[in-house]
Amino acid sequence: MRLTCPICGARDRREFYYQGDAVALDRPAPGAGVQAWDDYVHLRDNPAGPRRELWHHEAGCGAWLVVERNTTTHEVHGVTLAMAVAEARR
């Protein structure tokens, strides 16, 4: 498996650390309530198909990445810097 880091280019998967669903970017406000926090920290879908995930280019540039990947075909549709995604939200 290979991922194309927007900074470093196409790299072998062993350079990356896998985190999980990209929902981790959407941190609720402290007072958002139990349900919102439960969703954020614990509840995850397990889709067969496209999903957004967080990977860390740990053995490369150190960037956190949002990877759009299809779990059934293993196609990678896009890799974006998590920082760019987070900045765009603000």
């Binding site: 981790a24 970017l25 967080l54 860390h56 150190g62 960037a63 956190w64 998590a82 920082m83 987070a86």
Partner: peptide
């Protein structure tokens, strides 16, 4: 890295 890049850019 995560906190900085993803939560506190």
């Amino acid at each position: 890295y995560f906190v900085h890049q993803a939560l506190c850019p």
